[in-house]
Simulated scan of single mutants.
Amino acid sequence: MNDIPQPIIKQLRSLMPVRPLEEHEARSIAERQATKLLELLEQHAPAVDVGLITELPLVEVKVDSALRGTGILGFSNWSRGRWLIVVNRDDSTTRRRFTLSHEFKHILDHPYIGVIYSKLGKTEEERDYLTERICDYFAACLLMPRNWLKRAWASGIQDQTALAAKFHVSEAAMGIRLKEVGLIEPQFRSIRLPAIGRPVRNYFRRLPVAQPKLNTTTP
């Protein structure tokens, strides 16, 4: 019997059914992947050490000032035999943590991207936008796991600022997550893209960021 564990990325990808997904299914799978990643990284309490992602095989993370003024928070692609995640150096630490987590979800989705989100939205713009939201949701689930948040709340930490500090996220991100898990009333602030015509929850990205084209075959 082969007892050698599969690489973490492969284990997380195995949770993804390769078929078109409804938005609620995609979000549910994103949360399962985030929960599994926490388990594999042996993370059991806030704040999550997202730096462990940089230690995964074939993953390199750069915090780069070259994105200054571009409006791009980060991007990921396969280059020179490894996954490269670039994060904007000018962003706050909390935003960089969120961007790193978001971009890692793009890496997990890459082999199936032409299938799994193919039925989301009525236009390509809307599909891209909703795809970004799913990656945001993965990042929120990774940095603010549902059970951890409920445990902190039950222990008496119910101030949004205090919770944000404990989980090392922004207050805005914490506010959205508290509503998602049902700890405060879901009267969230919405944004609207004219081409989409319906409100969606937003953590940080004001507009979808185009992913650079991959330049070689990926694993």
Results as ranks from 00 to 15, higher is better:
M1K: 15
D3L: 15
D3M: 12
I8A: 15
K10H: 13
L12R: 07
L12I: 15
R13C: 04
L15H: 15
L15Q: 15
M16D: 01
P17G: 15
P17N: 14
V18L: 14
V18E: 09
R19V: 11
P20D: 08
P20Q: 12
H24A: 13
S28M: 11
E31L: 13
Q33D: 11
A34V: 10
T35P: 03
L38G: 11
E39A: 14
L40M: 08
L41K: 05
E42V: 04
H44I: 04
H44W: 11
P46G: 13
P46Q: 11
P46L: 02
V48D: 00
V48S: 03
D49F: 05
D49V: 05
V50L: 07
G51N: 12
L56Y: 02
E60A: 15
E60F: 05
E60I: 07
K62M: 09
D64S: 11
L67G: 09
G69D: 05
T70E: 08
G71E: 11
L73A: 14
G74T: 03
F75H: 15
W78S: 09
S79A: 11
R82H: 15
L84M: 11
V86I: 07
V87E: 13
R89G: 04
D90E: 10
D91A: 08
T94R: 06
S101M: 02
H102M: 04
H102K: 07
F104P: 04
H106I: 00
L108T: 02
D109H: 05
D109R: 05
H110Y: 04
I113V: 08
G114E: 10
G114R: 05
V115I: 04
I116N: 02
I116M: 02
Y117C: 11
K122F: 06
T123W: 02
E125A: 07
E125L: 14
E126L: 05
E126V: 09
D128F: 03
D128I: 07
Y129P: 00
L130T: 01
T131W: 10
C135L: 06
D136K: 02
Y137K: 05
A139S: 12
A139Q: 01
L143T: 01
L143P: 01
L143C: 01
N147G: 14
L149C: 14
L149F: 08
A152C: 13
G156V: 12
I157G: 04
Q160D: 12
T161G: 13
A162E: 15
A162F: 09
A162C: 12
L163W: 10
A164T: 14
A164K: 09
K166E: 14
K166W: 07
F167C: 12
S170A: 15
S170K: 09
A172W: 14
A173W: 03
I176Y: 08
L178P: 10
G182R: 13
G182W: 05
P186A: 08
Q187G: 13
I191D: 09
L193P: 01
L193N: 07
L193F: 06
A195D: 04
R198M: 01
P199I: 03
P199D: 01
P199S: 03
R201Q: 10
Y203Q: 00
Y203T: 00
Y203M: 00
F204R: 11
R205K: 06
L207G: 00
V209Q: 07
V209K: 00
V209T: 09
A210G: 02
Q211I: 01
P212I: 00
L214F: 03
P219L: 06
P219I: 02
